[in-house]
Amino acid sequence: FHVTIHVGDITFHIHGVSEEEVKKLEELVRRGADWREIKKTIEEIEK
């Protein structure tokens, strides 16, 4: 999957994300995680 996440003024683009990881990111966004937490999760996914 290709994912784009907008957190305030920050936009993250992630490529090659599995469905499971998409759900993890959706959950973070849904519970209102700040951009640092989302960035950390994205960095883990990209490894």
Rank of each mutant, 00 (worst) to 15 (best):
residue 1 F to M: 08
residue 1 F to S: 07
residue 1 F to W: 07
residue 1 F to A: 06
residue 1 F to K: 08
residue 1 F to E: 05
residue 1 F to Y: 10
residue 2 H to A: 08
residue 3 V to R: 03
residue 3 V to W: 08
residue 3 V to I: 13
residue 4 T to W: 12
residue 4 T to F: 10
residue 4 T to P: 01
residue 5 I to L: 10
residue 5 I to M: 05
residue 5 I to G: 02
residue 5 I to P: 00
residue 5 I to D: 00
residue 6 H to G: 03
residue 6 H to D: 04
residue 6 H to V: 13
residue 6 H to N: 07
residue 6 H to W: 11
residue 6 H to Q: 13
residue 7 V to H: 08
residue 7 V to Q: 03
residue 7 V to N: 04
residue 7 V to I: 12
residue 7 V to D: 03
residue 7 V to Y: 15
residue 8 G to I: 02
residue 8 G to S: 03
residue 8 G to F: 04
residue 8 G to A: 04
residue 8 G to Y: 04
residue 8 G to E: 03
residue 8 G to M: 05
residue 9 D to K: 13
residue 9 D to P: 15
residue 9 D to G: 15
residue 9 D to Q: 14
residue 10 I to M: 14
residue 10 I to D: 04
residue 10 I to R: 15
residue 10 I to W: 15
residue 10 I to L: 11
residue 10 I to S: 07
residue 10 I to Y: 14
residue 11 T to K: 03
residue 11 T to M: 05
residue 12 F to E: 00
residue 12 F to V: 04
residue 12 F to I: 05
residue 12 F to Q: 00
residue 13 H to Y: 12
residue 13 H to A: 03
residue 13 H to C: 08
residue 13 H to F: 11
residue 13 H to P: 00
residue 14 I to R: 01
residue 14 I to D: 00
residue 14 I to N: 00
residue 14 I to F: 08
residue 14 I to W: 05
residue 15 H to R: 11
residue 15 H to I: 07
residue 15 H to E: 06
residue 16 G to E: 04
residue 16 G to L: 12
residue 16 G to C: 09
residue 16 G to M: 11
residue 16 G to F: 12
residue 16 G to Q: 05
residue 17 V to Y: 14
residue 17 V to D: 02
residue 17 V to R: 03
residue 17 V to A: 09
residue 18 S to H: 05
residue 18 S to N: 09
residue 18 S to Q: 06
residue 18 S to I: 04
residue 18 S to A: 06
residue 18 S to K: 10
residue 18 S to V: 03
residue 18 S to P: 06
residue 19 E to L: 13
residue 19 E to C: 05
residue 19 E to A: 13
residue 19 E to F: 14
residue 20 E to W: 15
residue 20 E to N: 10
residue 20 E to P: 07
residue 20 E to I: 13
residue 20 E to L: 12
residue 20 E to H: 11
residue 21 E to D: 15
residue 21 E to H: 14
residue 21 E to A: 14
residue 21 E to I: 14
residue 21 E to V: 14
residue 22 V to E: 02
residue 22 V to G: 05
residue 22 V to H: 05
residue 22 V to P: 00
residue 23 K to C: 06
residue 23 K to G: 07
residue 23 K to W: 14
residue 25 L to M: 03
residue 25 L to F: 07
residue 25 L to V: 04
residue 25 L to C: 01
residue 25 L to D: 00
residue 26 E to G: 08
residue 26 E to P: 00
residue 26 E to W: 15
residue 26 E to H: 13
residue 26 E to M: 15
residue 26 E to S: 12
residue 26 E to I: 14
residue 27 E to L: 14
residue 27 E to G: 09
residue 27 E to R: 10
residue 27 E to K: 10
residue 27 E to T: 12
residue 27 E to H: 08
residue 28 L to G: 00
residue 28 L to H: 01
residue 28 L to E: 01
residue 29 V to E: 02
residue 29 V to W: 15
residue 29 V to H: 03
residue 29 V to F: 15
residue 29 V to I: 10
residue 29 V to P: 00
residue 30 R to F: 12
residue 30 R to N: 12
residue 30 R to M: 12
residue 30 R to H: 09
residue 30 R to I: 09
residue 31 R to K: 10
residue 31 R to D: 05
residue 32 G to C: 10
residue 32 G to Y: 06
residue 32 G to R: 07
residue 32 G to S: 05
residue 33 A to H: 02
residue 33 A to V: 06
residue 33 A to M: 03
residue 33 A to N: 02
residue 33 A to G: 03
residue 34 D to A: 08
residue 34 D to Y: 06
residue 34 D to Q: 06
residue 34 D to V: 02
residue 35 W to K: 03
residue 35 W to Y: 08
residue 35 W to L: 11
residue 36 R to Y: 13
residue 36 R to I: 10
residue 36 R to C: 08
residue 36 R to S: 15
residue 36 R to P: 08
residue 36 R to K: 11
residue 37 E to S: 07
residue 37 E to L: 08
residue 37 E to H: 03
residue 37 E to Y: 04
residue 37 E to M: 04
residue 37 E to A: 06
residue 37 E to T: 14
residue 38 I to M: 04
residue 38 I to V: 07
residue 38 I to H: 01
residue 39 K to T: 07
residue 39 K to C: 07
residue 39 K to Q: 14
residue 40 K to V: 09
residue 40 K to Y: 11
residue 40 K to H: 11
residue 40 K to C: 06
residue 40 K to E: 12
residue 40 K to T: 11
residue 40 K to Q: 12
residue 41 T to L: 15
residue 41 T to P: 00
residue 41 T to C: 09
residue 41 T to F: 15
residue 41 T to A: 13
residue 42 I to C: 03
residue 42 I to P: 00
residue 42 I to Q: 01
residue 42 I to R: 01
residue 42 I to D: 00
residue 42 I to L: 12
residue 43 E to C: 11
residue 43 E to L: 12
residue 43 E to F: 09
residue 43 E to P: 01
residue 43 E to Y: 09
residue 44 E to L: 09
residue 44 E to K: 07
residue 44 E to R: 07
residue 44 E to A: 09
residue 44 E to I: 06
residue 44 E to C: 04
residue 44 E to W: 07
residue 45 I to L: 10
residue 45 I to S: 03
residue 45 I to F: 12
residue 45 I to Y: 08
residue 45 I to C: 05
residue 45 I to M: 11
residue 46 E to P: 05
residue 46 E to N: 12
residue 46 E to D: 09
residue 46 E to W: 14
residue 46 E to V: 14
residue 46 E to Q: 13
residue 47 K to Y: 10
residue 47 K to W: 08
